[in-house]
């Protein structure tokens, strides 16, 4: 249809120059439709991304709806969806919190090492080594935590229960296999570490050199220079790196599914027990059907919302930081 008006215009061109004009316009028409198709496709792809994300929410909601109308006694646990989801949300938060508490200081340390402490020539290589941590698939981390880390930590847990058992989080009896939420948190920390490291490293490297040199010229030691020049500059960046790490830790499945022998919510970190949303889904989905399926999808929806909020906050901090460093 679109070629018809072009063809008409070509034949009824009032200005003359039949040969050259017609070739020009005919090329033009072909090029124009090419342009239109291409920009349309590009726009379509962009919109499709929005549709997909919207679809994620919509389809999860549709599949999760039966849970709302269901009899509370039919839900796993027998006390309704709230009672079912609450312990695993808490478990998810505990595991992610452990991961973040361990990985944030360590990640900042590693990032500082690469950006300010390591010999310049080796810094790139060290950075690449830490990035390799991110390249290892999560299921391999899970297998490693299951087969190597957990048995090692079981010994330490026994000691903790014996000597620090009066603290609720180290209450005994310790798990003999070491498959506890603390182990899961440690594995998650290893997985989150490269994210926090690479993001903070980028920001440490952006610190204005003049600030650093000014601090050093005033006689500051390296620690004081980092304290006065680097960390204030990088504060928002570190917070957003930690938030992105948190998002990853909340949603990580395999490490927890393999490492943790889950169960009811317990305060002790060194007993088996607790469960995370992602692991709960992975462990039960393959055999689930009917209402159980809706339950798990609803749990996934809760996880989606939690990570969405965390990520949006992180991005918001990053965008504020971008304005700030741009003005600098």
């Amino acid at each position: 249809m679109t070629s018809v008006p072009g063809a008409q215009r070509r034949t009824s061109d009032p200005k003359g120059f039949p040969v050259s004009t017609s070739t020009l316009t005919s090329r033009d028409a072909a090029g124009k439709s090419g342009d239109r198709v291409f920009s349309g496709a590009a726009l379509g792809a962009g919109i499709l991304i929005l549709v997909v994300l919207f679809g994620v929410a919509v389809f999860l909601i549709i599949q999760a709806l039966p849970v709302l109308g269901a009899d509370p006694a039919d839900i796993t646990g027998g006390d309704g969806f709230g009672a079912y989801i609450f312990p695993i949300v808490v478990g998810t938060v505990i595991a992610a919190a452990i991961a973040l508490l361990l990985a944030t200081p360590l990640g900042i340390g590693v990032a500082l090492f690469i950006s300010h402490y390591a010999p310049r020539r080796l810094a790139m290589t060290f950075g690449y080594l830490v990035d390799l941590l991110a390249a290892i698939p999560s299921v391999v981390y899970g297998a490693w935590g299951y087969a190597v880390l957990a048995p090692q930590l079981a010994v330490a847990y026994g000691w903790l229960a014996e000597n620090l058992g009066w603290i609720p989080i180290f209450a005994g009896p310790a798990s003999q296999t070491g498959k506890t939420i603390l182990t899961a948190g440690i594995v998650l920390a290893v997985m989150v570490l490269p994210i926090i490291t690479s993001l903070s490293r980028e920001i440490f490297l952006q610190t204005p050199t003049l600030h650093e040199e000014a601090a050093l010229a005033m006689g500051a030691t390296r620690l004081e220079m980092i304290w006065m020049a680097v960390l204030p500059f990088a504060r928002t960046g570190i917070v957003s790196a930690a938030m992105l790490g948190l998002g990853r830790a909340l949603g990580e499945t395999m490490a927890v599914a393999l490492v943790l022998s889950g169960g009811a919510l317990t305060a002790s970190l060194i007993q088996s027990g607790n469960q995370t949303i992602a692991a709960e889904i992975a462990l039960n989905f393959p055999e689930a059907y009917g209402l159980r399926l809706s339950e798990l999808i609803a749990a996934g929806l809760v996880l989606f919302v939690i990570t969405l909020v965390v990520n949006i906050i992180a991005r918001w901090i990053v965008s504020r930081h971008r304005d700030f460093s741009g003005a600098n």
Partner: peptide, 17 residues
């Protein structure tokens, strides 16, 4: 940006749903 943070299991659930 937000999509980069979707937990992989949620992506799986989406496709399944």
């Amino acid at each position: 940006d937000v999509m980069t943070g979707i937990p992989s299991i949620v992506a799986g659930l989406f496709a399944a749903a």
